[in-house]
């Protein structure tokens, strides 16, 4: 039989007491900075899309083509807008029921504001290039729908992963 060793036994028995240090909080802060989550990808997509539109708006402001009192293609646009708005609203309802962060909703709101700006310019600026604005507005809605789709896909994937884990 193994002989008793008081020092060995003492250390073994008091193992937990040797873990007396606390990890400093700044370590997590540094990990958080370095290790970017994959999740933020969609956010950059949204930011990139918004930036693109802002550039487009700037460009349009810069051009200021000749006066065009009536907006050509407005009726067709209204139809397209209605179509997109319905789909976006449906997706938005779905997103709101999911456990996504508030920042997702805030970013979508930023996109909405960009859209409102485009629309305002189209209706109020007599010198606006309507053709350009209308296509920018359509494109904007397509992108927004696209981004929302991506968010839903990600959350879906994650939820199906989670439920399969629960079955284990």
């Amino acid at each position: 039989m193994k002989r008793q060793d008081s020092l060995e036994d003492f250390i073994r028995e008091n193992r937990a007491s040797f873990d007396d240090l606390k990890a400093p909080d700044r370590v997590w802060a540094r990990i958080n900075k370095q290790d970017r989550p994959v999740q933020s990808l969609w956010k950059w997509t949204a930011i990139a899309a918004s930036a693109l539109l802002l550039i487009a708006v700037g460009y349009i402001f810069g051009i200021r083509t000749q006066a065009q009192p009536e907006i050509a293609g407005w009726d067709e646009y209204k139809e397209a807008e209605q179509y997109y708005q319905d789909r976006i609203a449906r997706k938005m309802e779905k997103i709101k029921t999911l456990p996504v962060g508030q920042e997702v909703l805030t970013d979508i709101q930023v996109l909405d504001e960009v859209y409102e700006q485009l629309r305002k310019q189209l209706l109020e600026d007599p010198n606006a290039d309507t053709e350009l604005l209308l296509s920018a507005m359509i494109r904007h809605q397509q992108q927004k729908l696209d981004i929302m789709e991506k968010i839903l896909n990600r959350v879906d994937k994650y939820q199906s992963n989670e439920s399969s884990n629960h079955e284990m």
Partner: peptide, 29 residues
């Protein structure tokens, strides 16, 4: 623990923090 790991794999910050908190003191020692 397995669902915590699944969340961490998804890049969930909160889950990663939970996991970190659970082991960081012991690992620091």
């Amino acid at each position: 623990e397995s669902s915590l790991i699944a969340l961490c794999l998804k890049g969930d910050r909160q889950a990663q923090y939970t996991l970190y908190k659970r082991y960081s003191d012991a690992m620091f020692n």
